[in-house]
Amino acid sequence: MTDQWVSFSRRGVAELVHLKGEIDLANANDIGRAIVARTTTADAVVIDLTAVSFLDSAGVRLLDFIVGDLDDRGKPIRLVVGERGPARMTLQLCAFRTDLLATDLEKAATELGR
């Protein structure tokens, strides 16, 4: 049901979450459930937001929840955003911690997947 927005892969121990398209109030909950089902036991998570064309506060709430969950478990997480673009804009407007953000998927995945 959420396949058009979210897909998964793995790099070492890191769970890679690839998001694309518009994430908003209408689909954020479903996407969130799909992601949590894969990340709840992961040792590291990288969420790739570079293909996201729109991200609203419901999407931010979803990312905030996942980050909080991994922080609580002491596992690392990175959000990969482009140098510019809608996802980076929204996250910056919400003042997400800069240590969470990365621009290079490969680098972030390799670093966390070890």
Binding site: F54, S57, M89, L93
Partner: peptide, 10 residues
């Protein structure tokens, strides 16, 4: 454009 879309959506 992106900022206006975000504000309008919210």
């Amino acid at each position: 454009l992106n900022a206006v879309l975000l504000a309008c959506s919210e």
